[in-house]
């Protein structure tokens, strides 16, 4: 910004024609209040050292080019498919990363070296005023903003102003309305309240085989699923069937005294904290652990939470054995499984 009262001698086009680019640069800097004090080359132009620096920078760019060629070659020809016999595939991603990284690094290094070795070192000084800008600057700039607003006519033309708000407000709606699709009413289909489990439904393993009481040894655990189509992939279906040791005394929650069968108990595998699979069953301490946030449940007390962030017991599936000797559910869970939600009633 040229200071107030700085007078520059008038120059004719002929004067300017006589100046070199470097002199013009100094002149321009001077007009902006910048004085270039010194400018020197690191190496003397044309010297041996300068040529070496030049070759170094050029070498970087050539390396970048070769790396890109290598990247394309790896992408096209390297064996990338998983194979037990030929384990070269494991180098595929690292090689891509290495060549791409080297190309980027070499371009960057070349530019940095160029700046450090070949560009002249320069010291420049710019005069700055103290405190505020002076009164004239401040007033003229404020007036410019007000004048611009006046020129748009927003203050006078109420039709334009209102239609602008209408149109741009609608743009905002585009962002907000799709969020509405994420909001679901849990009561409409009651999908948070029930699971596929029903009275008389068998407990099947991953391979679809129904579980019998003699299948588990004391201290054993089996993840079982509801015996319906798609039951093994139902997110709310997995149940831990645990056979406690015969000498373990179960202390049931209120209303769940008859939910077990013999020494077998069955709990939802979905943690009541944020829904991780809680299947770390410790057969000696009878604790069930959740791997995500270290919640612990006591299997002898109907999976009551005893440590960690979970605050509610794992829901218990009431089980019995049918006339053919297979485990069946006596009903669905009596409470919603998994993490809490706003409308969840308190069952404890």
């Amino acid at each position: 910004m040229s200071g107030e009262g700085t007078s520059q001698p008038a120059r004719t086009a002929a004067d300017l024609d006589g100046l070199s680019d470097e002199e013009l640069t100094h002149l321009g800097a001077g007009l902006d209040g910048v004085r270039i004090l010194e400018r020197e080359h690191r190496f003397a132009p044309g010297s041996k050292a300068e040529r070496r620096a030049e070759r170094l920078v050029a070498g970087c760019f050539v390396i970048a080019f070769l790396s890109v060629v290598g990247f394309i070659a790896v992408y096209l020809f390297y064996p990338w498919r998983f194979s037990l016999a030929d384990q070269r595939y494991f180098l595929y991603t690292p090689l891509l990363g290495l060549t791409m990284g080297l190309a980027l690094l070499a371009v960057g290094a070349g530019i940095v070296l160029w700046g450090k070795l070949l560009m002249p070192h320069e010291t420049a000084v710019q005069d700055r005023h103290d405190g505020f800008s002076d009164e004239t600057d401040r007033r003229t700039i404020a007036a410019t903003f007000r004048d611009s607003l006046e020129m748009t006519g927003l203050a006078r033309r109420s039709l334009l102003r209102r239609s602008l708000f209408l149109g741009s407000g609608a743009l905002g709606l585009m962002a907000v309305v799709p969020l509405g699709g994420l909001v679901k009413n849990p009561w409409a289909k009651k999908e948070l309240l029930g699971t596929p489990w029903k009275a008389g439904m068998r407990l099947v393993r991953l391979d679809g085989v129904a579980v019998r009481p003699e299948d588990l040894r004391p201290g054993g655990m089996e993840t079982v699923f509801p015996d319906v189509p798609g039951g093994r992939h139902a997110p709310d279906g997995p149940v831990m069937l645990i056979r406690l040791y015969p000498d373990v005394t179960r202390r049931p929650r209120a209303g769940q005294a008859d939910y077990s069968w013999g020494s077998y108990v069955a709990f939802s595998k979905i943690c009541t904290h944020v829904g991780c699979p809680t299947s770390l069953y410790e057969q000696q301490t009878n604790k069930i652990l959740c791997p995500c946030h270290q919640s612990q449940f006591d299997a002898t007390r109907d999976a009551k939470p005893i440590f960690g962030p979970a605050t509610r017991s794992l829901p218990m599936l009431p089980i019995t054995v049918d006339s053919e000797g297979f485990f069946v559910a006596r009903s669905d869970f009596r409470e919603p499984i998994g993490p809490a939600f706003w409308e969840r009633r308190n069952y404890d």
Partner: peptide, 13 residues
């Protein structure tokens, strides 16, 4: 055998 706290995975399991 289900050593220590590991659950027992018998041959029917």
């Amino acid at each position: 055998s289900g050593p220590e706290n590991m659950p027992v995975f018998g041959d029917n399991n």
